[in-house]
């Protein structure tokens, strides 16, 4: 009986420790509690992605791995305007203004990721998305993404091709739940009213193609390592 109590106590204290870490260490740069930024002033001030809907957005296994060895996902930072300067041919990213994310231990990463996955205020939006099984030829996917919808204007689809103001998409299938990807493309403002991402009015069919294309990109970038 005592042993059960000890296990229970450890589990509870482990959770509260992770919750404490979220509130203490993560909340200085991330919004944990919501609501998401409702004004541009608040959107410009964001230092990291909003985590108040992290459980609807991320893949837990990716969070655990990334938190131990973080890499840059947004080439020009959170609000790109704070990290660019005029250059010879065009505005350029000013690397001196970008800060790296801290790395944490395996145990802490697992505990923090578990806490983040509890944050699910938008199960309603996720439930509206149905991901159809299927695949797309890489070239077709790229044509849909680049030429038909023009998404490469803001997103990298490989480390050296695409736009810089949005998050890179060659690892997006590993990072995010497919239903979230679909929902965010369908209506970005339902998640973040002030996001730089426009609602392009993509049909459900096109959204399925995007998700399948990101899967192809993800596999390719994994093979490249």
């Amino acid at each position: 009986m005592k042993r059960y109590f000890l296990v229970l106590l450890l589990a509870v204290s482990g959770n509260s420790l992770a919750d404490g870490m979220l509130q203490r260490d993560c909340a200085s740069c991330h919004n944990i509690t919501g609501p998401v930024a409702q004004t541009l002033k608040k959107a410009f001030a964001k230092k990291g992605p909003d985590l108040s809907y992290a459980g609807n957005k991320y893949r837990q296994e990716w969070l655990v791995s990334w938190l131990q060895k973080p890499t840059r996902i947004r080439p020009a930072g959170m609000y790109y305007g704070d990290h660019i300067k005029p250059g010879a041919k065009s505005d350029e990213i000013d690397p001196a203004t970008l800060k790296d994310h801290i790395a944490i231990s395996n145990a802490d990463a697992a505990a923090v990721a578990a806490e983040l996955m509890k944050l699910k205020p938008h199960d309603d939006l996720i439930a509206k998305e149905k991901i159809e099984p299927g695949s797309i030829d890489k070239q077709m996917g790229e044509m849909n993404f680049d030429k038909f919808w023009g998404c490469m204007a803001c997103h990298l689809i490989e480390p050296e091709y695409g736009g810089m103001s949005g998050p890179e998409l060659y690892t997006v299938a590993k990072r995010l739940q497919p239903e979230f990807i679909a929902s965010f493309i369908r209506n970005p403002q339902a998640w973040e009213p002030k996001t730089w991402m426009p609602n392009k009015g993509a049909s459900s069919g096109s959204i399925q193609k995007f998700v399948q294309y990101f899967e192809v990109l993800g596999k390719e970038s994994a093979n490249a390592k």
């Binding site: 020009a76 790109y80 660019i84 005029p86 505005d91 736009g163 810089m164 730089w196």
Partner: peptide, 17 residues
């Protein structure tokens, strides 16, 4: 927020993207 990413900090069409 929305235009500078492509149209540039100076509005000259030379954005970071």
């Amino acid at each position: 927020a929305y235009c500078v990413q492509c149209h540039g900090m100076e509005g000259n069409g030379k954005g970071v993207n």
